[in-house]
C-alpha cells in the first residue's frame, strides 16, 4: 500500500468515525439539545465524506443548508420549547428493549444485502479517481436539462412549504371581538366527552346561517 492509500484509509475512518459518533449521540444523548448538537457533528461528518467523494458542491451545500440552516433551525426550536421541557425525562429515550433488537436486525439485513450485492459499473464505467476539475458545472447543466422538471418542481415545493409553515406557526391574534364560539376551547381531554371541541369548524351553528 502506498502512502496515498494509507491517507485514504485514514481520512475515511477518521471522518466516518466522527459521523458515527455524532449519530450515536443523536440516539443516546440524555438531553435533546445535546442530541441536536450531535446531529450537527454528524452532518458535518457527512459533509466531509462528500468531500472525500469529490462532491464539492454538495459539501458546500451540506454545510450551508444542512449544518448551517436545518440544524440551527432545530436548535432554535428546541430553545423555544425548552422553557417548560427543562429537566424531566422529556429528552430521554424509551422503548430501547424493542427498538434496539429491531434496529440490529434491520442493520444485519441491510448490511448483508449491501455486501452480497453485485454493484455494476455503468456502461462506459469510469475509474474511481475524482475528476480533474470541479464538477459543479456538470451539475448545473444537469439541473437545467435532464433534471429540469425536478428543478422546477422543487421551487414549487419550497413555496408551498413556506406558506404552510407560516400558516401553522404564526400566532393568531386572539380576537377580542365577538367570536364567542371560537374562544371557549377546552384545552386538553374531552375526546370522549360530548362537548363540541371543534372550535373553528363545526360547533355552535347559528351565527351566520344565511350562507
Amino acid at each position: 500500500m502506498t502512502w496515498a492509500d494509507w491517507f485514504d484509509q485514514f481520512a475515511f475512518f477518521l471522518v466516518g468515525g466522527i459521523t458515527l459518533l455524532g449519530a450515536v449521540g443523536v440516539v443516546f444523548a440524555p438531553r435533546i439539545i445535546h442530541a441536536c448538537l450531535c446531529l450537527l457533528v454528524a452532518l458535518i461528518g457527512v459533509a466531509g465524506l462528500y468531500g472525500l467523494m469529490a462532491a464539492h458542491l454538495l459539501l458546500g451545500i451540506q454545510l450551508l443548508v444542512y449544518a448551517g440552516g436545518i440544524a440551527v433551525l432545530i436548535l432554535f426550536a428546541i430553545m423555544l420549547l425548552h422553557r417548560r421541557g427543562e429537566g424531566g425525562i422529556l429528552g430521554g429515550t424509551r422503548n430501547l428493549i424493542i427498538g434496539l433488537p429491531a434496529t440490529v436486525i434491520v442493520w444485519f439485513v441491510v448490511a448483508a444485502a449491501v455486501i452480497f450485492s453485485k454493484w455494476h459499473y455503468l456502461p462506459g464505467g469510469a475509474t474511481v479517481s475524482p475528476p480533474a476539475g470541479s464538477n459543479v458545472r456538470i451539475i448545473g447543466e444537469l439541473l437545467l436539462s435532464r433534471h429540469l422538471l425536478a428543478f422546477e418542481l422543487v421551487s414549487v415545493v419550497m413555496l408551498m412549504a413556506l406558506v404552510g409553515a407560516i400558516i401553522i406557526a404564526r400566532e393568531d391574534k386572539q380576537p377580542g371581538r365577538n367570536t364567542p364560539g371560537t374562544t371557549g376551547v377546552s384545552p386538553v381531554g374531552s375526546r370522549t366527552g360530548e362537548t363540541p371541541v371543534l372550535p373553528d369548524g363545526v360547533c355552535t351553528g347559528g351565527e351566520d346561517e344565511s350562507e
Partner: peptide, 15 residues
C-alpha cells in the same frame, strides 16, 4: 440504523 433507532426510541418529537 441509528436514525431508525432514534425514531423508535426518542420520546421528544424533535428527537
Amino acid at each position: 440504523s441509528f436514525g431508525l433507532l432514534a425514531v423508535i426510541t426518542r420520546r421528544h418529537a424533535i428527537g
